[in-house]
Structure formats: C-alpha cells, structure tokens
Simulated scan of single mutants.
Amino acid sequence: MNRRTLLGLAAGAFALPARAQTLDRPVRIVVPFAPGGTSDILARLLAPTLTQSFGHNVVVENRTGAGGNIGADLVAKSAPDGHTLLLIDVSTLATAPSLYARLPFDLKRDLAPVTMLIYAPYILAVHPSVPARNAAELVAYAKANPQRVNIGHAGIGVGNHLTGLLVAQHWGADLTQVPYRGGAAALTAVAAGEAQMIINGATATAPFCKQGTLRAIAVTGPARLADFPDVPTFAELGWPAAQSGTWQGVLAQGATPPAMVNRLATDIRAAMAVPATAERITALGAVNKAEGPDSFRTWLDAEIEVWAGVVRANNIRLD
C-alpha cells in the first residue's frame, strides 16, 4: 500500500464524523398517536425551529396504533441516519417490553435515546355531569357506583391507563377502563360525556379544564399547577403514582452513529430553549427536561423496570 493510499484512508477516517452528522434531506418526526395529543402538540411546536436548524423541512407524521408500538416499530426499522425520529411519551414506551411477549422491535437495541423533552403532570378530570367537585366526593361517588364510572385512557398499557388502575385500587373502586386511540380521542370522548373520567397529560387536558368542558380534580407531579391553584396533588391526597405523568422524548433508530445522535440532541435542545417555545411549554403546564442521550438512556432503563413491576402486579399482558 503506497503513501498516497494511506493518506487517502486516513483522510476518509477523519471525515467520517462529519458525514455522520450530515442531514441532507427532509427529516420525519413520527408521532405514534393521533393529532391533538401531547406528543403531537410538541412535535408541531418544535418542527419550524428544527427546520431552520437542520436546513431541511421537518415533517410530522402520525402513525397510530398498538399503544404507540406501530410508530415505534416504523422508526426501529428505518435507516440509521437520523432522518426518521420518534417523538413519544417515553414512559408509555417503557411499558412495552413487559406488556408484550412478542414486540416487533427490541427497545434497547433498535431505538437510540436522543433527548428527553418535557415532563407534564397528569390531570385527573371529570365530565361536568359527575356530581363530584373534589377528590373526596369523587372517591365516594366511584365507590357507590361500581362499573358505572367509565375512565377513558389513551390505550391499554399506556402510562395513564396504568396510573388509573393504581388509583382505582387505592380507592377500592371498580372503574370501567375504556381505551381509545390516543389521548386526544380519550379527551374528546370524556368532554362529550361518553366517559366520565380521565387521567391525561396536562399539556393537552388543561385547555378543556379552563374552558369548563372538564373539571380538574387532582394533578400528579411535585406541586400544584399555577393555572389550577385550588386543585390538590396526588401526593397531598395520599394517592399512588404521585409522580407519574407524560415524559416526552425523542429517539432515533438504534444503530444511528453517536455523532449524529449528539448532533440531533444539541439541535433539539437548542430548539427547546427558544424563548417563544419555552414560554409555550410553560403555558401548557410542562417542564423542560431536555438533556443528553446518556442521562436519557439511564432514565429509560430505570423506567422500564418500574413499570414492569406495575404490569406484573396487575397481571396485564397484551399478546
């Protein structure tokens, strides 16, 4: 091998990281839930800024079904080049390995955490027809009407479904769990009186409560929400799953080069910090949790174990 060949190989080796970070065509953000939910709201909020950062159009694509797994599988089987991303409630994604015996993808192998985005607490809300204006009255009503209180949720096995199971057990109430195709569909159903109760992310649920279409009874998270100062937290009430909520994050195909993952994480975190975006996130009742890939992976691994325990305790399987 001559000197020119060796120099050429060396130059190629040093050029690899740069090529690995290049976005040369439109980027697709796959949201595995219907339009109008927290993931969809966040994806469409970030898309314009990311279009500028990436230098190419960012397109939001909704691929619904199987509690988010259809969209996740699409990204898991995409090219590992950073052009197809998954924006999802990652606490819901974390339940998949314990819920499904035969997932079409391996969460730890086929999806690479890029960055966490936000944490938004859940709001437990009821339709105005429910004769309960506070937590104590709701618990009493639910216990006095077994199987007559329908609680809508975003799909079997997702985070708000499991939180609802834990709350019902704690109350000693027999609620009828009603799955919908995503949080937006569940919200619409409860607002229409098709179901009487919902536990759902504050980002999507708060507007319904402000309009009076739903009545907020309690919230998860470390503190009361500024827009609902009279609504107590689960922790204040002594309810379980007090810190549950919707944790939104972005993942890429599992074999995406680390240089590309880091580039995506940097650009997305910068988009989250744009003042108009940051203000909008705060107004939606969410907290910016954007962070690097390593801390996101550590969080996700721990979350998988936490929800596996809940799934086992409730004997939930989806095969």
Rank of each mutant, 00 (worst) to 15 (best):
A259G: 04
R109T: 08
I29R: 03
A265T: 00
T22G: 08
L162G: 06
D319M: 09
G68S: 11
D319C: 04
T84R: 07
G152L: 06
L107H: 03
V274T: 15
F208V: 10
L237V: 05
V149H: 10
P229H: 03
T115P: 01
A79Y: 09
T266Q: 15
K108F: 06
N2H: 10
F234Q: 05
A206L: 15
A283F: 04
P113M: 05
R215Y: 07
R215K: 15
D40H: 13
A206R: 14
P222G: 02
A184L: 01
S53C: 13
V59F: 11
V60K: 13
E194I: 10
V27Q: 08
A136T: 08
S91L: 03
S244D: 15
A302Q: 08
T213M: 12
A186M: 02
A185E: 14
P32V: 03
A259L: 06
N62C: 13
L50A: 04
A206V: 15
G55H: 01
A226M: 13
R102Y: 13
N314M: 09
V274N: 06
T233V: 05
P179T: 00
V31L: 02
A96P: 06
M197G: 10
P104N: 09
N315M: 01
H161T: 00
Q248F: 10
A202L: 03
W171C: 11
G193W: 11
N200A: 15
I151Q: 08
R63E: 12
V75E: 03
